[in-house]
């Protein structure tokens, strides 16, 4: 009975957070001189108005799903893997590299794609391990190491696009030369959505869910995250577990980056990671690191992103409003969480 009451209480607080976030956002919209209801309507229209919009939202959902899933592993180990953005980028770079290397080879295209995706995962994993090594052996906090590595990854992309991998004769911000269609993941007719990518995203989430909830490994990882010293004394090889969690997260981030190349852009572009890493951090915090909520909340976040394109068209509002909504949501949840702790302690 008491358990039930607590659950209702929690739900009340969570609803309160959502209301607070909506209130904050509406104030911002009003300040910009637009009617909030209209703005929300346009957001919905942009995300779900047509079959194509829905498909685009799902296209954006996949990399966010993957990045957030990966982040749950590092969060479980008590690590703030802010370098996830760079790990996505390295996934894209490695995949592009493999595709460029093999695109003229006699290998069957499907096999090349598989190799390229595996290469991308490896690239993301290695880049993550680098952040882990900096932390474990260099004493560099993973937040700062990660941020630094993100900058390097971005610069590397630009350098590759305008340098060694530039289009014949001319570098273009449009990215590298697009790959032939045989090397694209097949999409649904008339849409940009690849069922393969969606399946990989969902499988990844399920794997993470069971890894963290149902395995001995997940349990030990959480022990490391909760109290590394105690975990070490209990015989868990702490730093190895941390490195392994980085690697796992990097694999998923790398897969996200890889799919951006083989399923979405079909080439390497600047900003290929599209901020999904940072967004993933927000989603993970918002859902309090519970794998169960990754899919719906990530979907909500990308719907905001895709839908917000309508704001400048229809209402002359800046589409960064979606970022305001996402940010105030996370802040509101944290603030309400803080209030709850305080009230319940009394």
């Amino acid at each position: 009975m008491q358990h039930n009451e607590k659950r209702w209480q929690n739900l009340g607080f969570q609803l309160g957070a959502v209301v607070l976030a909506l209130l904050l956002t509406s104030l911002v919209i009003l300040a910009a001189g637009a009617p909030p209801l209209d703005a929300y309507k346009q957001l919905l229209k942009g995300a779900f108005g047509t079959k194509m919009n829905v498909a685009d939202t799902v296209v954006a959902w996949v990399p966010l799903l993957l990045a957030t899933s990966g982040l749950l592993v590092t969060f479980a180990a008590g690590l703030w893997n802010i370098g996830v953005e760079g790990q996505i980028i390295l996934g894209s770079i490695f995949t592009t590299g493999v595709l460029k290397l093999l695109q003229d080879s006699p290998l069957p295209p499907a096999f090349i794609i598989v190799l390229a995706v595996l290469g991308g995962m490896l690239g993301g994993g290695l880049w993550a391990v680098l952040a882990g090594v900096l932390k474990t052996f260099g004493g560099v906090n993973e937040i700062f190491g990660g941020l630094g590595l993100n900058f390097i990854a971005t610069s590397m992309t630009i350098w590759l696009i305008f340098g060694p991998w530039k289009r014949p004769g001319v570098g273009s911000m449009s990215g590298t030369e697009p790959f032939p269609e045989s090397l694209w993941l097949p999409t649904l007719p008339g849409l940009r959505l690849s069922i393969w990518a969606v399946m990989l995203g969902i499988i990844a989430l399920v794997v993470i869910y069971f890894l963290l909830q149902g395995t001995y490994f997940g349990l030990k990882l959480k022990a490391v995250g909760n109290n590394p010293r105690a975990a070490f004394l209990l015989g868990i090889p702490t730093w190895q577990y941390m490195l392994l969690s980085f690697f796992l997260c990097g694999l998923f981030a790398g897969l996200a980056g890889s799919l951006q190349v083989v399923a979405v852009y079909h080439r390497l572009i600047p900003s290929i990671s599209s901020g999904y890493g940072y967004l993933g951090l927000m989603v993970a915090m918002l859902i309090n690191y519970q794998a169960f909520w990754v899919a719906p909340v990530a979907f909500f976040f990308v719907a905001l992103n895709i839908g917000s394109i309508q704001l400048p068209i229809a209402l002359k509002l800046d589409s960064s409003l979606s970022g305001v909504i996402q940010g105030s949501l996370v802040l509101a949840v944290l603030v309400v969480e803080g209030i709850r702790h305080r009230l319940l302690r009394k």
Binding site: I82, G275, Y278, M285, S320, G323, G327, L331
Partner: peptide
Amino acid sequence: LVMIVSLALAACA
């Protein structure tokens, strides 16, 4: 962390 992430996002936005 939220502040850092928001700043990073704001920088990109």
